[in-house]
Amino acid sequence: LAKDWQAQDDSSETQEELTLDQFMSRISLESLHAYPDGEFEVYCHDGDLFWGHVIIVSGNINGTFQDAHIAG
C-alpha cells in the first residue's frame, strides 16, 4: 500500500523508493482493538508518509491478516 500511495503522488518532486526499514521506523502504534471472537484491528500513525492518515490492519489471533488500508 505504501508504494502504491507513493506512486499516486503527483507532486513534481522525485521521491526515493520507500524501503521496509524506512516504513517501519516511521509508523507507530496508536491503538489495538481486540474482539471476543479473536479478531483484531491495529491502528498506526503513518509518520506523515500518507499526509497524516491512519494505517489500519485487521486480522485474527490465529495469525491470519485480513486487510490493511489507509484511512482518514
Rank of each mutant, 00 (worst) to 15 (best):
D46P: 08
L32V: 07
G59N: 10
D67P: 01
V57P: 06
K3N: 08
L32W: 15
S25V: 13
P36F: 15
I55M: 09
L1T: 10
S12K: 13
A2Y: 15
T19W: 15
S11W: 11
W5R: 00
E39S: 04
L20E: 01
T19G: 09
E16L: 04
D21M: 02
T19Y: 12
Q15I: 14
Q8E: 08
L49P: 02
I70P: 02
T14P: 03
A2H: 12
D10N: 03
F65S: 00
F40N: 02
K3T: 13
I70E: 09
F65T: 10
F50W: 05
H69K: 00
D48K: 03
P36E: 14
C44Q: 07
R26S: 11
I55W: 13
V54Q: 05
I56H: 03
E39P: 04
Q15N: 11
S25Q: 10
Q22F: 07
A71P: 02
T14Q: 13
I61P: 01
K3F: 15
M24W: 07
L18Q: 09
D21R: 08
H69P: 05
T19A: 00
G72Q: 09
D4R: 07
V54I: 08
E39T: 15
G47P: 03
E30H: 15
N62F: 08
L18W: 02
A71W: 11
S58F: 09
G38T: 06
E13M: 07
L1E: 15
V42W: 09
F65V: 04
G59W: 03
D37S: 07
L29H: 06
S11V: 07
R26W: 12
M24T: 07
N60T: 11
T64E: 15
S25G: 05
V54L: 02
W51F: 10
W5P: 08
H69M: 00
L29P: 07
I55F: 09
N60H: 04
S11Q: 09
I70K: 11
E41I: 07
G52Y: 12
Y43N: 14
Q6C: 10
T64C: 13
L29E: 12
A7Q: 03
D21N: 11
D4V: 10
S11A: 05
L49R: 06
Q22Y: 09
W5L: 13
V57Y: 08
F40V: 04
I56G: 08
H53F: 08
M24L: 01
Y43C: 12
T14K: 12
D46E: 12
N60P: 00
Q15C: 05
F50L: 12
A2T: 14
G59Y: 12
H33E: 10
Q8N: 14
I27D: 13
L18N: 02
R26M: 03
S28R: 13
E16Y: 15
V57Q: 13
E13V: 14
K3C: 09
Q8G: 05
V57H: 05
E16Q: 13
N60Q: 00
E16S: 04
Q22T: 11
I55Q: 03
Q15H: 12
F50D: 04
A68Y: 01
G52S: 03
A34C: 06
D37G: 00
